[in-house]
Write a protein that binds this DNA or RNA. Structure first.
Length: 928
RNA sequence: GGCCCGGUGGCGGAAUGGUAGACGCAGCGGAUUCAAAAUCCGCCGCUGGUAACAGUGUGCGAGUUCAAGUCUCGCCCGGGCCACCA
């Protein structure tokens, strides 16, 4: 019998499905382990070989844990709401649900072919009303809660109202958009509308007029993490700044907790670092600067209060309300002109020229709080409205941005810090946070560190302000003016937002006649008929963004069919949180922040028992494509020139399908029939050995349909079997590294499986032996088991595959057909190559699935041999390399060295001065 | 500009501070075969040498160590993320 992988694949995939081998129970005496993949967005293109990389790794680990006696939860689902299906709907009129369902089916077929051990009975789809009911419910809870800073957790908004009624804002410490202050009497006197407006300032889900990233091409606003370089992440359309009334989530309230708990997580350092940067905590001082001749001042935020004597001007963000209040009559026109210019600039333009500083003088002045001098107030768009107070004190001598601004507008530069190697601050700012204060009155002679502490005290003492922590992390804008997303569970009564009760959820997405905005510019839901409550109150027209559905899906897998709760207390207290999360590092600032926030909020509510969702995370690298190019003449569209000759011509680079190129040599006939326009083209060839060929150029790029470099996993699985695909994806290199896909090496992995198969067979018949194994056979087995078991915990699956290859090579040299050796080997291999392992396991006479067999233990005694390899002499010392048991004592090693024949030969006629035993297996002998 | 990760043969990549290049691909030589495919055996960093062998070698330059691809410092190069966050 030869290795018929196609039959084996089918047989065992069917067996697993029929026997529900991987269905997980919610109650078990065995310890639990939760292995999760980031669920995919089912795009129309289907899976390419890059997608399953992480799924294969997590599946290997899940299977390994099962063999080790864990009750493993390993589910899969789909992030099914999203822009591509909706863009397609706009073009074709096909309902996004239809497209999504089709794509989803194709994904499932492709996934099934790779032999994953998912428990599909727990599948979650974000577009399923039974699921998004809980997304909507969580939103209503966020509306009904505020963040209590003193208790450091979310609390019901009714508590806040109670406090207002008793004490006004006194004694209230709540995270808010603006700091408000009123008495209980004032609160009572406020109108209903005013009270609601105030509450919006505290609610965790709130409506606000905010500057947003507006993408006209997509007709929607986008979150900060959905914008890259001023273009939309999906589609690459320009994004502009605009002020709109939007639903927001008060993620910023959780900034400190998101930062602190990062320390406890078993994530890669780089991943944590990205999150730390995104949260961007900075400690500084908030300080009030009075405006000359007026009875008010404005706050600035600075992390460098030590440089206060170097302040030579102030800068307000263009969005700042103070701009109008400080601008003089003379400067009014100039300032208004400037603000107009700023508005016209797109986000992209603003980011493109970070070098040129623009701004305008307002005519107003501030009083320096320490020197009493007058300082001019400017407006400049390098100061951001959304961070700190939207106003800064500028210290051009010690901040490079202020320096550039000062140079541009010829403002004075006063040095106040003298550091090592301080250059002339007139030419370049000295930004480093070390040195001694000069020209600084009360802090002269202090180090920067001392000066910061002293100034913080001084600022507080003089009532100018206080120490303050700022976070870069902004609240998330939660509205999208799109169709294919979760509808908000919100209706408006006299303009005031009202939440739907749980019993009214889910509020299902209505049908519309087109997926475009209405003529009045309302979102597509504006087209839905009767989009209102029974009482006639209109529903919200926006839908929720992509990250809404992915923020709690991992909880739903624990209890996917529960109609009364997101997850029951029982299910949650058994499964707790995700033990291992596998996914791409590109979600560091989006999904992984939002889901941590969402999870912490639910934890505050007491709905779940863990405040961190993902204990350990492994980030698989991206599999890049290797594209091929042909070169077309610019002046002759019918002529193509080979790579080596292209520099002699004016050419245009064109992507060519990698499937008609082999070893970078183009299959000319295949190219001619690839596309009709290439039917009768000509080629300029170059010499390669004796042959004239067309050589293609190549580049490593992202794998994508438009670059014709997509390699499909189905084709690989069909040609070599799904186990070969699994093994090869792991063999390609370290899991976390990005690497290009290159099918060249796959034969080697396939050969390994054939060799393994042949250990069991002699021609067409089975040839297994029950005899007990020889020591050298057991050594091969246990060396392999040891390596594979160790690699498991480090996710070093590439070297595990090598270990199996070595074992099988040596066993086939030894002609080992002992069941005693092959049995454990098959179990260890089963996470990697489950189909083949199941088949071989059954050939060994087992009736149960290999996934239920206990993981074979390594026995060290088979690994050790006590022989000298060879001695090396150097620098008057002898170095001996030993293959000895690691735990031998010093004396035993010395004895072994001295008794060894080889070493005696080397040591003959020499005096031993000293024997140094260095760790592991090297012995140095110093001789006279 | 800031932060993170990496740099080892023709290629993908191995190496708890301890024989650098495991394993695989490609290449070369041989066996088998009428022949090919498949399979098996051997060689395979660079330089010199028929060879044994010698020298050299992990981006560059220093340092720590009996011993450095690995640790420390300073550079160079590549990739990624963030980017006027005061």
């Amino acid at each position: 019998m030869s290795y018929n992988f196609q039959e084996i694949d089918k047989k065992w995939q069917k067996f697993w499905a029929e026997n529900q081998t991987f269905k997980t129970e919610d109650h078990s005496s065995r310890p639990k382990y939760y292995v999760l993949d980031m669920f995919p967005y089912p795009s129309g293109a289907g899976l390419h070989v890059g997608h399953p990389l992480g799924y294969i790794a997590s599946d290997i680990y899940a299977r390994f844990k099962r063999n080790n006696g864990f009750n493993v939860l390993h589910p899969m689902g789909y992030d099914a709401f999203g822009l591509p299906a909706e863009q397609y709907a706009i073009q074709t009129g096909t309902h996004p649900a239809v497209t999504t369902e089709e794509n989803l089916k194709r994904y499932r077929e492709q996934l099934d072919k790779i032999g994953f051990s998912f428990d599909w009975s727990r599948e979650v789809k974000t577009c399923d009303p039974a699921y998004y009911k809980w997304t909507q419910w969580a939103f209503t809870q966020m509306f009904e809660h505020y963040y209590d800073v003193a208790m450091d957790k979310a609390q019901p908004i009714s508590n806040l109202i109670e406090s207002f009624e008793k004490n006004g804002t006194n004694s209230v410490k709540a995270w808010s958009s603006q700091e408000l202050s009123f008495s209980k009497d004032e609160w009572k006197a406020f109108s209903e509308d005013r009270r609601e407006e105030i509450l919006q300032n505290y609610r965790i889900a709130y409506l606000d007029e905010v500057p947003v990233n507006w993408c006209p091409a997509l007709g929607t606003v986008l979150a900060n993490d959905e914008v890259k370089d001023g273009l939309s992440e999906r589609g690459g359309h320009p994004v502009e700044q605009k002020v709109m009334k939007q639903w927001c989530l008060r993620v910023s309230a959780y900034a400190q907790r998101l930062l602190d708990r990062l320390e406890t997580l078993d994530w890669s350092e780089s991943m944590k670092e990205v999150q730390r940067n995104w949260i961007g905590r900075s400690v500084g001082a908030q300080m009030n600067f009075l405006v000359s001749g007026k009875d008010f001042g404005f706050d600035i935020f600075t992390t460098r209060p030590d440089t206060i004597y170097g302040v030579t001007f102030m800068v307000l963000a263009p969005e700042s309300d103070y701009v109008f209040q400080v601008t003089t009559k003379e400067q009014k026109a100039a300032v208004e002109n400037y603000l107009e210019d700023c508005k016209k600039k797109s986000q992209r333009e603003r980011m493109m020229d970070t070098k040129t500083m623009t701004g305008v003088f307002t005519g107003g002045f501030c009083v320096h709080p320490f020197t009493g001098k007058e300082i001019p107030i400017w407006v400049g768009d390098y100061v951001l409205g959304g961070y700190g107070t939207g106003a800064i004190m500028a210290v051009p001598a010690h901040d490079s941005r202020d320096h550039a601004f000062a140079k541009n507008f010829d403002l004075p530069i006063i040095p106040v810090i003298e550091g090592e190697g301080t250059a002339n601050v007139q030419d370049e700012s000295y930004d480093a946070k070390n040195g001694i204060c000069i020209n600084s009155d009360i802090i002269n002679g202090l180090t920067v560190k001392e000066a910061i502490a002293k100034m913080n005290d001084e600022v507080e003492k003089r009532g100018l302000g206080s120490k303050k922590i700022n976070y870069r992390l902004r609240d998330a804008i939660f509205s999208r003016q799109r169709y294919w997303g979760e509808p908000f569970p919100v209706y408006y009564k006299e303009g005031k937002p009202q939440m739907l009760e749980l019993s009214k959820l889910p509020l299902e997405l209505p049908e519309v006649d087109a997926y475009l905005p209405t003529e009045e510019g309302e979102p597509p839901l504006g087209r839905a008929k009767n989009w209102q409550t029974k009482e006639g109150h209109p529903y919200e027209l926006s839908t929720m963004p992509g990250f809404a559905g992915s923020s709690a899906y991992f909880l739903r897998y624990m209890d996917p069919h529960n109609e009364d709760q997101l997850v029951s207390i029982e299910a949650n207290s058994y499964w707790k949180n995700v033990d291992l999360y596998v996914g791409g590092p590109e979600h560091a600032t989006g999904h992984l922040i939002y889901s941590r926030f969402w999870n912490k909020f639910l934890y505050d509510l007491g709905v779940i028992c863990e405040d961190e969702p993902f204990k350990k995370m492994v980030n698989q690298g991206m599999i890049q494509g290797r594209s091929n190019f042909v070169y077309r003449l610019k002046n002759d569209q019918k002529k193509f020139v080979s790579l080596g000759l292209k520099d002699n011509y004016e050419t245009q680079e064109i992507h060519v399908d990698v499937n008609i190129v082999s070893n970078d040599i183009l299959d000319i006939e295949a190219f001619k029939s690839w596309r009709p326009e290439f039917k009768d083209v000509e080629f300029v060839l170059e010499k390669e050995g004796d042959l004239e060929v067309y050589k293609c150029g190549w580049a490593i790029e992202k794998m994508s349909k438009s670059k014709y470099n997509v390699v499909n996993p189905d084709i690989i699985a069909e040609k070599y079997g799904s186990d070969t695909l699994r093994l090869y994806e792991m063999f390609l290199g370290p899991l976390e590294q990005s690497k290009p896909w290159n099918t060249n090496g796959i034969e080697g992995v396939y050969r390994f499986l054939v060799k393994l198969w042949n250990l069991f067979h002699e021609g067409d018949s089975l040839q297994l032996s029950d005899e007990s194994a020889k020591p050298e056979e057991l050594k091969v087995l246990h060396t392999c088991l040891k390596k594979v078991s160790e690699d498991m915990e480090n996710f070093a699956f590439n070297t595990s595959v090598s270990a199996f290859m070595i074992a099988v090579n040596e066993l086939s040299k030894l002609k080992c057909n002992k069941a005693e050796v092959l049995g454990p080997l098959v179990i260890a291999l089963s996470p990697f190559a489950p189909h083949t392992a199941e088949e071989l396991w059954s050939l060994l006479g087992n009736s149960d699935s290999v996934s239920k067999a206990p993981w074979p233990q390594t026995e060290e005694k088979y690994l050790i041999e006590s022989t000298f390899t060879y001695p090396i002499s150097f620098n008057g010392k002898m170095r001996f390399l030993l293959d000895l048991p690691i735990d031998l004592g010093k004396e035993e090693i010395e004895k072994a060295v001295l008794e060894n024949e080889d070493s005696q030969k080397w040591l003959e006629g020499k005096t031993i001065k000293k024997i140094i035993i260095v760790p592991k297996k090297i012995v140095n002998i110093v001789v006279g």
